[in-house]
Design a protein around this nucleic acid. Sequence first.
DNA 1: GCGTTTTACGTAAACGTTTACGTTTTTATT
DNA 2: AATAAAAACGTAAACGTTTACGTAAAACGC
Lengths: 337, 337
Amino acid sequence: MNPTIKDVARHANVSIATVSRIINGLPGYSEDTKKKVEEAIEALGYQPNAIARGLINKRTQTIGVLFPEVSGMLSSEVLEGVENAAHDGGFSVIVCNTASSGKRTVKYLRLLQEKRVDGIIFASEDVTEEYYKIFQEMKVPVVLVSTASHYELPFVRVNDFEGAFQATEYLINKGHKKIGMIGGSVNDPIAGVPRMKGFEEALLAHELPFSANHITTNEGYRFQNGKESLPILLEHLPEMTALFAASDEMAIGAMSAAHQLGIKVPEELSIIGYDNLKIAEMCYPALTTVSQPLKDMGQTAGDILVKLIKGKEKEAESRYMPFSIVERQSVSESRDK
Amino acid sequence: MNPTIKDVARHANVSIATVSRIINGLPGYSEDTKKKVEEAIEALGYQPNAIARGLINKRTQTIGVLFPEVSGMLSSEVLEGVENAAHDGGFSVIVCNTASSGKRTVKYLRLLQEKRVDGIIFASEDVTEEYYKIFQEMKVPVVLVSTASHYELPFVRVNDFEGAFQATEYLINKGHKKIGMIGGSVNDPIAGVPRMKGFEEALLAHELPFSANHITTNEGYRFQNGKESLPILLEHLPEMTALFAASDEMAIGAMSAAHQLGIKVPEELSIIGYDNLKIAEMCYPALTTVSQPLKDMGQTAGDILVKLIKGKEKEAESRYMPFSIVERQSVSESRDK
DNA sequence: GCGTTTTACGTAAACGTTTACGTTTTTATT
DNA sequence: AATAAAAACGTAAACGTTTACGTAAAACGC
C-alpha cells in the first residue's frame, strides 16, 4: 500500500530511527543523510501515517465540535471560525450534529472519546451532569461557545443580558414607549431568560411599563416562531410601535408577518433583532440588530482550546465577546416622541 | 490513563484475544466468559481505542469533506446531509474549508491522506488535474457533490441546464417576454455556463430574442453580486419584466436593489432564483425559486461514499437529483400577456 | 472408551510510528 | 597519538489493537 517509514529507511540505507528524526526535526544526523532521506521521501511519495503517530504520541491533532444543528446559520458561522483556528493550530475538526438530542450527544461524546480527540468545543445546549461526567472521564479540555454552565468550564459568548438591555434602550432612545418582545424559551438559560430579563430591566430603568403581556415566549428561535408571535403580541399590545426579537430569524419572521398584515416596517413598527446573521442585511428593510461576532467567537473558542491542548495555559480564561448594535433600516424614530 | 484491552483481560482473567473477540462479536467463547468480560468492561469503563484499531484495520471510520466555504448556507445544508449519512454509516466527518484556494485544498488533501480517511466528499470547485492525482494516490473513494469533472468520478447534483431552462420557461409561461438573467461566471462549468445556457435555450425555444445584453455575469453568487447586477441589467434591458438569477442570494440582492429603485416586486418585476435556500422563504416577497434538494444531495453523496468504502458497490453510480420549482410570491403574470 | 470433530481459549506477530538506550564513528583536547 | 567528548546512527521496546495459528478441553459418534 502506502510507503512506510521502513521503505524510506531501506531506500536511503539508514535506520527508521534516523528517518523519524529527520521528519520530526530532531537532532542527530548529518546533512548528507538528511539529503539522502529527503530524496527517498520524495521518490517514494512518503506520507507519515498520522494514525500510527497518534497511537504512540497519544495525540491525534483532532478536535470535536458539537452543534445542535450544523445547517443553522448561527452554527455554521461559528463553525467556520472554529475550523479556522483549529487549522491554524494544526488540528482537524470533526463535526457532530447533536440535533438537540441528549441521546445523540452522549453517543457522539463516546465516539469522540474512542477516536481520542484532543479537545472538544461544545456549542450545543446546556451542559448536563451526564455530559460533564463524560468530559471529566475523557480528560480533555472543553470549551463552550454561546453557552455556559454552572460547571467550571471556559466559555466564549456575549453578555446576553447586556445585549438585550442595550437593544431595548436603543428603541427607547428612538422615542418608542410601547415596546414588545418576541422572546425565546423560559427554560433556556442562555438565549432565553437573559435576553428577556435584559428587555424587562431596560424598560424598568426608563420607567416604562412592563408586564408579561409585553413578551411572547417561544420554543425555538426560528422564522416561523417570529411569524406566529407577531399577531399574538399585537393582540396583547395593540399600540406597540417597536419590537425586540431575541433572534434575527424571529425578527424577520415578524417582519414577514407585518408585511402580510399591511403594517409598514419601520414606519409603523420598528424591529430590532439579535445575532446579525448574514440574512440581516439581505432582507427588506435591512434589519437593525445586535451583532454577535459569531465567526470571531468560533475562532476564539478554537484558539483557547488549542492553547489548552498545547498546555500553554493552565487555567482556562472565559471570554465575553463584545457585541454592537448595527443600524440598518428596520428601526425609525417614534412618531409620538 | 484510559484502561486498555489488557486491563480488561487481566481483570477478567482471560487473554486479550478473547476480549477482542467478545468486543467484535466474533465467535469463540462461552457465555460465562462473555459475562465475565462484559462485567470487567463495565467496571473499568473501558472504551476501545479507535486509533489502535485504525492502525491495524487500516480503516479509520472517518471521511473528509471539502467545502469552499463552510458558513455558506448552501454548503452548510449539504454538510448536514453528509454528516447524517456518515453518522448512520458509522463514520465521522472531518470538515475542511478550502476557502476556494488551491493551495489550501492541496494542503487539506495531504492532511486527509496522513490521517488516513476512508473516503472523501468533494464539494469544492473544479477538480483540477493536481487534485485528481492526489485522489488516485490516496486510493480512497471520492464523491463529488454539486460539482462534476471530466474525470471519472461519481457525482451528485442536479441538472443545471434543465433547472435553468425550466426556470426561464416558467417565466415565459407567466407571459413574460423581456427576460433578463443575473448569471455566474463564464469560467464556472457547473453553476455558471449551464445555467446561462439553459436560460438562452429556453428563450430561443420560445422564439424570444436573446443577446449578450440579456445576461450580466458575475464573479461570485452572492447577495452583493445580485444587487450590483440589477442596475446594469436594467440599463441593457430597460423593458425587462422578469428576471432569472443564478442563485438565491443574487435574486435577493436584486430584490433589494429593486426596492431601492422603487421597482415593485413582483408587480413590475418578477424574480425567480435558484437553490431554494432557507432565506428564500424568509425574504419579502418570498422568493419563487428552483429548489435543489441540498440536504438530500449531501445525504445521498454520503450514502454513496459509505457504500463505496464498504465495498458494496464496485462502480460508483452518479446521481442527478430532481429539482423543482417552488412557487412563492416573487413572480406574477406579465401584464402585457 | 477411543478417535474425531468442535469449541474455547491463549500466544505471538503485525500495523507504522517514536524514543530511550546503546554503539560506533568522528571531532576535539592534550 | 592517546583519550575524552560529541555527533551520528542503529536496536528494540512500546503504543493498543486484531488475527492467524496452535493447543487443550469438551462434545460427539460409534
